[in-house]
Amino acid sequence: MSNVEATIRELVTTKKVVLFMKGSRHFPQCGFSAQCVDILNKLVPAYETVNVLSDPAMRDGIKKFSDWPTIPQLYVDGKFVGGCDIVKEMFANGELAETLGAAGAVAAGVGGASAAAPSGPPAIKVTDAAAKAILAAKESPTEDLRVIISPTFENELFFDGAQAGDIVVDAGAVTLRLDVASASRAHGLTIDFVDASGGGGFKLDNPLAPARAPSVRSMTPKALRSALDAHEPLSLFDVRTDGERATASVKDAIAMNENGQRHLGTLPKITKLVFMCHHGMRSRVAAEAALRQGFTDVWNLEGGIDAWSVEVDATVPRY
């Protein structure tokens, strides 16, 4: 067995979904590879890609391994699924979602939903406001609202005609169309329409969607005061300059200078962090940076030390 054959065998048996392609998932370098990536992106959140352009031995090797003359090539659970034409057709008729079912469900972290769901249309609730907005926007009687829910639970809504393999949901006054993969992620979905000045928007509430990635949360001066008074475990970082700190400061705040940076780096990532500055802008930037470093419990003192002075402690001078 040649080296490259062993490498391929190892890859396809240890990884659930492997796409041998030209380019990478983010930069496909051939139209057919790009089409396969688009389809896989709709069905599974994570999969392995192998760029055959970066390795001529791999490019020839995979053709021999699969006895298939073209790239891209898709493997699922160690089995050769096919090239671009087959992947497209299997996507359209729902077979690909089924093939990927087991792999997709585990990766998406939604239990067996992806695998079990295709049996029937999902229960989707469309509020009266949303139904009214959908009907008002509908221009063609042959088109219905298509709902796409990506593996990472980003939503897309647009009017579209019937597609092969569609799951059609009769939601009272309106009809919805979903591909099989989206349908598997749509059970319990509520589509609402929120009116706002300058035009409203649809609001989708999906109970299957995992909790959002952590974001910077807002803390009021009063909330910070009571947290400090209660000696809640938190680290308060002041990102202002030394000069500003000399003018006005909050007791217990750690100066975000070089020492402060170093100290931050030593803290466990679950530490509750609060960032403050003069008005809450610079501290927000610092807080976002802390999130990127992997901290998950990150707060911004809204209004900064100026609001602190007004709302909590008038002895702190304003400047």
């Binding site: 057919f32 006895d67 298939w68 003359p69 073209t70 050769f80 699924v81 096919g82 090239g83 034409d85 087959i86 057709e89 299997m90």
Partner: peptide, 29 residues
């Protein structure tokens, strides 16, 4: 579909192999 396409690809394999093959890509089969 896979087996069916294999039959066709194996039939035209000689046209797709070697340097500068006459068939560089099958856009759709």
């Amino acid at each position: 579909m896979l087996e069916s396409q294999r039959l066709v690809y194996s039939a035209i394999a000689p046209l797709m192999s070697g340097d500068g093959p006459p068939v560089h890509a099958v856009d759709s089969l």
